[in-house]
Design a protein around this nucleic acid. Structure first.
Lengths: 212, 212
DNA sequence: TCCATTTTGAGAGCTACTCTCATTTCGTGG
DNA sequence: CCACGAAATGAGAGTAGCTCTCAAAATGGA
């Protein structure tokens, strides 16, 4: 969905060619996000206004809204879906689907959390504390769900719009969402990857024993 | 969560005793909701302002907010959770859990949809069309999820706060949410109860056959 | 009928978000 | 190197959801 206007210059020599404009845009984006994280850490989410964010990022409020459609989006920004889809596609086609999911999720978690633990924790904490952020996260999760539908459909030759596929995908996504909340609510003490593993077990086999 | 101040008068003769005050409150609540439904049908959700709602319901905007914390809540209003919990508790304790869920969900769907199909359809349609409503619905679904945790914990002697129970509950809730969306997106053509049945099958057994 | 409590209305105020339009900044082709 | 077209930015006004406060009205019990 982001502007696909990559610089298509003929010479391969000038590689980092994004154009001054593009680079500046990326910088602005990051400036806004950095400012937001800092302010939220200082004063909390609600007390942080767009105006403050704009001030600290040294842009106008208009610009903030131009980059992020809503305040919650500043802290969320999920560009991970396409990456995930690619990784799903990269798995061998004969691999059983649950194994594929497990593999890819594990990897996604690792790169996601280990790369910037600070941000991962802040995000999940905000998910727990701020309803608006949680809502937004759920929205973005449902987008991820649609993407999963595509992947599942490709892999298993089903209709991505069928009830079965959609329900399966959303239950997965819902479960993983809850895992994130659980992680944050328990002060990020657990190893997130391990939690995800347990989650996938449950989704695969249901509640273990007892009365089922 | 709603006011549990049922009239506990001694005499059984004066049954509908809720006090004029309580009854008026209920009336106001319904007036606001009715006005909202009507206006949304006429102009759509976004075009309908709180002021218009207040006008048509013949109350002040302040009052609208006093009755409903947010605009989306006017169309949602899920008082069903306690009822659901009760029904879950009413099932025989030795019944396998999946059967219990199926039973109760079926019944909930029946009473919910068949009682007022108009509203059920409007609600689900809005869930599809209006992000704010969808978000709110997801929020309320997660409340339902917590309730489910309680029920599951009671039934199976687990910790309601354990990851396992929570994930299981949320995947259930997520799946059912998706079912509602599916129903609405397909123009409410399917029999909702049948969809729910299929949903529970998937959640119980995973995607049928193929590559799993 | 009068008093205490509850409910309501009016209004001010805050903030997220939208839209428009003038200004600035950048990339390019002459 | 400059000028021109396109894109990004800023400024400002406007809307609507939502909160808070306080005074007025409705209600129920004594």
């Amino acid at each position: 969905m982001t502007s696909m206007t990559a610089a298509r210059t003929t010479s391969p020599a000038d590689r980092p060619r994004l154009g001054l404009r593009e680079r500046k845009k990326i910088k602005t984006r990051e400036a806004i996000r950095t400012a937001t994280y800092a302010l939220i850490k200082e004063q909390g989410y609600d007390a942080t206004t767009i105006e403050q964010i704009a001030d600290r990022a040294e842009v106008s409020p208009s610009t903030v809204f131009r980059y992020f459609p809503a305040k919650e989006d500043i802290v969320l920004t999920d560009e991970s879906d396409p990456v995930l889809l690619e990784k799903l596609r990269a798995r061998p086609v004969d691999e059983p689907w649950p194994d594929t999911i497990r593999h890819v999720m594990r990897e996604a978690v690792r790169t996601g959390v280990e790369q910037d633990p600070e941000v991962a924790r802040l995000r999940t904490r905000l998910m727990v504390q701020v309803p608006a952020v949680r809502s937004r996260m759920m929205e973005s999760m449902s987008v991820t769900g649609r993407m999963l539908c595509t992947a599942i459909a490709e892999r298993t030759g089903r209709d991505p719009d069928s009830l079965e596929v959609r329900v399966y995908a959303m239950s997965l996504v819902g479960g993983l969402m809850e895992t994130s909340l659980y992680w944050a609510e328990n002060g990020h003490r657990d190893d997130f990857a391990a939690l995800v593993d347990r989650t996938l077990d449950i989704l695969q086999h249901g509640l273990p024993r007892e009365n089922r």
